[in-house]
Write a protein that binds this DNA or RNA. Sequence first.
DNA 1: CCATCGTATGCCAATATGGACATACGTCAA
DNA 2: TTGACGTATGTCCATATTGGCATACGATGG
Lengths: 132, 132
Amino acid sequence: MARAATTTDAFNAVAEPRRRDILDALARGERSVNDLVEQLGVAQPVVSKHLRVLREVGLVQVRDEGRQRIYRLEPAPLRQVFEWVKDYERLWTERFERLDAVLEDLKAEQAQADRQGSRPATSKTTDEERTS
Amino acid sequence: MARAATTTDAFNAVAEPRRRDILDALARGERSVNDLVEQLGVAQPVVSKHLRVLREVGLVQVRDEGRQRIYRLEPAPLRQVFEWVKDYERLWTERFERLDAVLEDLKAEQAQADRQGSRPATSKTTDEERTS
DNA sequence: CCATCGTATGCCAATATGGACATACGTCAA
DNA sequence: TTGACGTATGTCCATATTGGCATACGATGG
């Protein structure tokens, strides 16, 4: 089986840096294709193709204006990405908190060792349960 | 040029749903490969290959335990994804606020129209500036 | 030492990609 | 009408993918 199409969902669509650049540009306001071509400094067909992908996953909307096509950001599909990744943010924090706790423990043990002149006991505890 | 390798960055790595499943599983604790195989219900080589990708972008760490390999989540690289997408969350909120405002306006205009017996004026304003 | 377990890897097929280039198409101005 | 402009699309190339299958490999138990 081949890789999932970039038009499958927002995850695949924003995996391409150039497309993120396009979205970033559109986040600051509507843009015509040529505007984007200038801002990104890439060939026009390339931009058009990326816009097509973004259109197909609903990340942008188009509007005809004379011979120009004005693209507008449609952030809704990014919600899926945000919702998935946001839960992991807690893990960084937790990890840091846990690190702090470990350091505290070590300091305490060290202090006790200094007082008693013996080596700190190796406290071995699993920090995550293994539910299988 | 072909599509960027899945091992390029977290964006590409998590574009694959199965890999997100793996990360979700690991978020609840360490897992051996076979644990993951059972939980995901996919063939073992497939899991191993996805784990390889995740390893190469630093999203998981491995530890040998007898003949098992225990995988652990390393959420740090997801920060890049979070940081990029989080700014877009504001846009949903803003959009909703704007929608609320529009609805308020419509209601007000409607009320006035009812009082005066005329149709509400179409208020046309650009909501985003076009900086090129 | 040998068989088995747990895992990783190699090869294959089918598919999709992003970019370069050429070109088609619709709109507008003269 | 004709030509220029703005944009989309088609073709081609080189590359990478996911999953299936077979198999290699290291650790362990007998």
